[in-house]
Amino acid sequence: MLKTGLGKVLLVLGIVLLWGQSLLLQAEEPELALPQSIEISTGEWPPFLGEDLPEQGVIARLIRDIFAQENISVQFTFLPWNRAMHDTLNGKYAATAIWMFQDDRAKNFLYSQAVLDEKFVFFHLKSSPFYWQELTDLQGMLVGGVSGYSYGPEFDTAVKNFIIGLDSVGSGEQNFRRLALGRVDVVAEEISVGYHMLRQRLPDIADLITHHPQPLLINQSFLLFPKAQPQSAALNELFNRTLADFRVTGRYDSYFESLTTADIGTFYLSN
C-alpha cells in the first residue's frame, strides 16, 4: 500500500512539473509582432475603389483608416482582379479587397467581417415608368446585365426558367448606353457604381436615367487574408475589432455619405 501510494504521488508530481514547464515555455514565446505597414491588392471598382479616385475610393479610405487606428499604414496596389487574388494567395500581399463570399475562396482565405453592403437595383429611363415587386413583374422585359455577374440565386433561377430575359455585355457603361437607346428595358447595377458611371463617364445620358428604390440584391463584400501567412489571423482579428468600433460609433456610415443620396435620385462625389 505504501509503495502504491508513493507511486501515485510521484506520478502526480511529475505531471504537475511537466505542466509547469509547458506554461513556462509558452510564456517565454514572444508574441507575433504585427508589421508597421502592409500592402493590399485590389481592383478598379469606382466609386468604392479606384487608383485615380480621391483617396483611392471610399473603401480604400475606410480600410486605411481602420488600420491606422492600430498604427499600421496601408498601401493599395491596383491590379486586374484575378491577378490581385492570385498574387495575394501566393503571399505577395497581406490581404486583398474586396470580395463576395464563395466557398472555394474560404479554403484559402480568412474572411473579415463585412466591409460593404452592396445594393443592386434596376435602373430605367425616366420617360418609361417602371414598377416591380416580384421578379415575375419583369416578365416580357429585357434586363441588361454584365457578363459573368450573378444577381442572386432567385434572379438566376428566373432567367433559367425564362421568366426574365437577360442580355449581358462586357461593361455597365455599355448597358446604360443600350438603355438610353431603348435596346434594353432596365439595367441591373449596384446603385453607387451605377450613378458614378452615369455622372462621371456618361454625363450626356445621366439625366435621362433613374432607378427603382426596391433592392434587387443586397450583397456583402469582405477583406480577405491568406491563411498561409502567419500574421493573417492577427491582422483579421484587429481589423474586425476596429471595424466593429467604427460601426458602433457611427463613423462607418460617414464614409458613404458623400457617395449617393440615391433615395432622391441624385449623385455626387466629394473632392
Rank of each mutant, 00 (worst) to 15 (best):
N219R: 15
G7M: 11
L24D: 09
R105G: 00
Q36W: 05
Y93T: 01
G20L: 12
T77C: 02
E154V: 13
H212F: 11
T96D: 03
G50Y: 07
N219A: 12
L181W: 07
I98K: 02
L142G: 03
H211D: 03
G265L: 04
R64D: 07
A262T: 02
W99D: 01
L6Q: 10
A68P: 00
E70Q: 15
S150T: 15
V9M: 12
Y252A: 05
Q56A: 10
F76K: 06
I72L: 09
T42W: 00
A68W: 05
F225S: 01
W99R: 13
P226M: 03
S112A: 12
D263R: 11
S147I: 13
A84V: 08
N219I: 09
D185S: 12
L223W: 00
F76C: 06
L216F: 08
L217S: 02
I72N: 04
P226H: 00
S192N: 15
F256N: 04
E134R: 09
G145D: 00
P215A: 10
L24S: 13
Q21I: 13
F123P: 02
L224K: 03
A94I: 03
D204K: 13
K119E: 11
E134L: 00
L223F: 02
Q56D: 08
G194V: 00
E237W: 00
F256W: 10
D117Y: 11
A180R: 08
Q174Y: 04
T88H: 07
V143G: 01
W81I: 10
R178V: 07
D167T: 09
R105F: 14
K8L: 14
A97D: 02
P203R: 07
L11M: 13
A206V: 07
E44S: 14
F120G: 04
D204V: 05
L53P: 06
D263E: 15
E39N: 11
R61C: 03
L269V: 09
G14C: 12
P46E: 07
L217W: 14
V193D: 06
K3T: 10
Q26M: 10
L208V: 06
I209D: 01
Q75K: 15
V12K: 06
E118S: 11
G250K: 11
A158I: 03
K3P: 04
Q21V: 13
A262S: 13
R199V: 11
G14F: 06
S221D: 05
L18T: 12
A233F: 08
I205S: 06
V169I: 10
W99K: 08
Y111H: 07
D207H: 12
E44W: 02
K160P: 00
Q229N: 11
L89R: 15
M141H: 09
E39A: 13
M1C: 08
R61I: 02
P80N: 10
K160T: 13
D87K: 14
G20S: 13
P47M: 03
L202M: 08
T261W: 04
Q102A: 14
L208W: 06
E134H: 11
L62R: 03
S258M: 04
T260W: 01
S41Y: 06
I59S: 04
V186N: 01
L18G: 14
V193F: 10
P30G: 05
E29A: 15
V16N: 00
Q133D: 14
L138N: 05
S41T: 09
V146M: 07
M85K: 11
M197E: 08
G7N: 11
N271W: 02
